[in-house]
Nucleic acid binder design. Structure first.
Length: 259
DNA sequence: ATGGCGTACACCGTACGA
């Protein structure tokens, strides 16, 4: 199975590029984030023509996650689905899950956090704790499971183009990295790092200036897997070409091949 | 310290992203 994750930064603005990318790359499964549309306006028919079924959890303007798959999807779950809402901000569309080919696939768009100490930052750290509890409730380390998406944090300085410049800043702070590690302690492997240990390969580049051209990026998009899946993964790559051109998302897709 | 770039929504600017 070829499984990808991609922060598409508006699926409507990127529809043609997405369809072309699917035709060229032919993943069996792609997890999308920041679809930025309500489900009724999602390009469901275009993806169907491309050979993919979709499951959607969108909202107006912001956030939104979706899974497109050539294989049947069952046991669809949206949100954390059994914790009471902690307020309006908690209803954001950031998690969708489905079982595909015997693997529980969880697609997440972790809150950005804006800046250290902001209300959204507090929400981000709490969201990571909810994610850990969600895993504990719904799976075990022995469950064949993939947790992928835009995590809005770098795991360490190998994920950062200029560690001294980013030190302690949003996406690189010790508290955010600790929050991520608490989730990974569930029993998850960073599959990209396992296959690319040297690091310094990124999944996001700022739209502004020469960031992409000079490879000034961050790796904040991940494919994590429990051991039963991780041991079957043969390659994990970041499709840097998908970031090229005028109409690109600011994120590149991460692609894993599972034997 | 700011802006730089891009998207959504609907203002012709503001919110947000990372």
């Amino acid at each position: 199975m070829k499984l990808a994750t991609w922060n598409i930064n508006s699926v409507r603005a990127r529809e043609a590029r997405l369809v072309a990318w699917l035709a060229k790359t032919a993943p069996d499964v792609v997890c999308l984030q920041e679809t930025k549309t309500e489900d009724a306006s999602f390009p469901t028919e275009a993806l169907k023509r491309a050979g993919y079924d979709v499951v959607l959890f969108g909202q107006k303007s912001y956030n939104g996650v979706a899974i497109a798959s050539k294989l049947p999807m069952t046991d669809i779950s949206r949100g954390f689905d059994d914790e009471p809402s902690a307020g309006p901000i908690d209803d954001e569309a950031r998690v969708i899950a489905a079982t595909i080919g015997g693997i529980r696939v969880i697609d997440v768009y972790v809150p950005n956090g804006q800046e250290l100490g902001a209300e959204k930052y507090v929400y981000k750290l709490a969201w990571y704790q909810r994610l850990r509890r969600y895993l504990d409730r719904t799976a075990t380390p022995e469950t064949p499971l993939v947790l992928c998406g835009d995590f809005n944090v770098t795991s360490d300085d190998l994920d950062v183009w200029a560690p001294e410049q980013w030190a302690g800043k949003i996406h690189c702070s010790p508290d955010e990295r600790a929050a991520l590690n608490d989730v990974l302690a569930f029993g998850l492997v960073d599959t990209f790092r396992a296959h690319n240990p040297a690091g310094k390969i990124y999944s996001w580049w700022d739209y502004r200036g020469v960031s992409f051209f000079k490879n000034q990026g961050l790796r904040i998009d991940f494919i994590y897997a429990t051991q039963p899946v991780a041991e079957k993964i043969t390659t994990v790559t970041i499709d840097r070409d998908a970031r090229k051109g005028q109409d690109a998302s600011d994120h590149a897709p991460v692609i894993a091949t599972i034997a």
